[in-house]
Design a protein around this nucleic acid. Sequence first.
DNA 1: CTGTTAGCGCTTTCAT
DNA 2: ATGAAAGCGCTAACAG
Lengths: 351, 351
Amino acid sequence: MADTPGSKRATLARVAELAGVSVMTASYTYNRPERVSEQARAKVLAAAEELGYAGPHPSARSLRRGSTLALGVVLGEHLTYAFDDPAAVAFMAGIAEVCAERGFGMTILPITGEPEDAERIADAAVDGFVVWTTADDDPTLAAVLATRRPAVIHNGSRVRGLVQVSIDNRAAARAVGDVAFAGASRPAVISHPLSRERVASITRGAELGELGDVGFPVTRDRLAGYREAAEEAGTPWSDVVVAVCARNDPAEAERAATALLTSPGPPDAIAAMSDQMALGVLRAADTLGLAVPGDLAVTGWDDLPAAAGAGLTTVHQSMREQGATCARAALGRRPRSSTAPWSLVTRSSTR
Amino acid sequence: MADTPGSKRATLARVAELAGVSVMTASYTYNRPERVSEQARAKVLAAAEELGYAGPHPSARSLRRGSTLALGVVLGEHLTYAFDDPAAVAFMAGIAEVCAERGFGMTILPITGEPEDAERIADAAVDGFVVWTTADDDPTLAAVLATRRPAVIHNGSRVRGLVQVSIDNRAAARAVGDVAFAGASRPAVISHPLSRERVASITRGAELGELGDVGFPVTRDRLAGYREAAEEAGTPWSDVVVAVCARNDPAEAERAATALLTSPGPPDAIAAMSDQMALGVLRAADTLGLAVPGDLAVTGWDDLPAAAGAGLTTVHQSMREQGATCARAALGRRPRSSTAPWSLVTRSSTR
DNA sequence: CTGTTAGCGCTTTCAT
DNA sequence: ATGAAAGCGCTAACAG
């Protein structure tokens, strides 16, 4: 049989030898069957069967062909979070769609936060990369760039000539912030992490200064937009309370919102950077018996299916479409940046 | 600069040449820095920089090394569905966890339903496969087997000596069915598809006969368990209404349930093969003004987070853990089948 | 239709 | 510490 302990892995050469044909005839049997006689074909197949030959070796093929037919996906510090976050999942679905269309595999790279991450990225058998939202100083980003393979970053920074796909986060934040903070006298923000350390905190705009220290470009841009909105509504940025959540998770946001709402001078409007977090805020308001939007206006971001059910005013964007756009760009010869569409969805959670 | 149009992709040989050292010194610079003098190292790195050399070619390395450090994941007929189904997402998260731990990439293979699927599986640069629930006659399964690489199938059939990971679906269906159908006189089932064609239909147990035609082993086993439960509760299987949904989706299940519940002699108990579908059933009952469990008992499967909120009696299982188990098995030398745990969670949707 | 030659880019011996 | 040879397994390019 095929897999007897002593036998090496079968190769095309051995198959050809056993079949009594040249290696090329054997190769053609697999790659261009039409160029091989029925006879030769049968002999090769029989030999393959006997040796337990499973077909051409993928890595050898890739080497020869010069491409791997796989797209790499880099998901930030914690691989598994990606599957827990609905927005990330939608994004990956978009990538998957394009990959399937083009017959590409989609290789999700293991990111653990350890230094080996960089090596693994360098050694990944992929033709290009899509990088999910990250901070400017993410070593992962540097590693991707160092491969010199086509790479597209989603929601990254505008600097450095990186190719990227993103919406205009500042403008969207300004728009949703205007609605969130309309008629409010104590606006607050629930924010994604400011840096890769992902520390949770409750601060005021004053401490965030010019936002230059905010490592995540998305977060920085959104804060800038909210800031404009708050100032437009009459509250100086320095007075705006900003609660930073370490994770994009309703439970954590609920705790943060509860803390804000039970403090002296509680907010009467909260703009959250995701629907996930906004849903947590709504839960907190409900528990505390606050009327939305009467006592508290709330906005989210993403327009997840759950947002409609909750009557949440939010920023609509299609993560799935953005994922697809990233994938298409990364699979192109010369990827180009692009700006994705968004829209404001006004529902019953705002005044 | 590096990427001038005329220049070929830099190789280690060219770097070595420019650095004035042998190829091996250049190679060691990347792989065993400790065996290279500081001097040589510097020259090599400088040459690499100048040529825009991005490091060793991954496919060439894989070829040499004999392994790809990536695990393949085959997700059934429609790649993108996988990201829409919470159970599938949890399963993938489990795989991702193990891959990250071991420094493996996770390559999701594009499955479109076309014949090329098989070629792509054969050509995937992965060391092993995990196959998500599928039918016995899925060509994809055959393709995976043909690679002779380690493969583990989740929720597959017990035949053919395939390595697989699964819970005891028959026993679990029997258990949840016993609760669902307790005190019911007209039990019904909402089922996953019976075959890869995924045709939706409403039939009775009578037409399903001995279940031998049911292509999906999971579905077959669960039907067998429900059947026992129905008979135990006093209804012959031939009278049990079985609504087959094409997709695992609340909306479709809601329509099916509405059809059943508005027909003459409507069911007074519905066992659904997933929480997703059970949630659709609950919605239908709510719309029709039926009391649960008074007028209608409902059970689901999976114990998704949403099941607890809905008070749904269901079968608890950890898809995440099962994904991890599959991955660990597939990355092992000699994968072995294993049976995963499950438990019955009784809530308020049953009598 | 079949075969020969020449690598794809790298790293494992085994010297020196 | 460095290098020469050999070959991982395959296929494009060109004969015949």
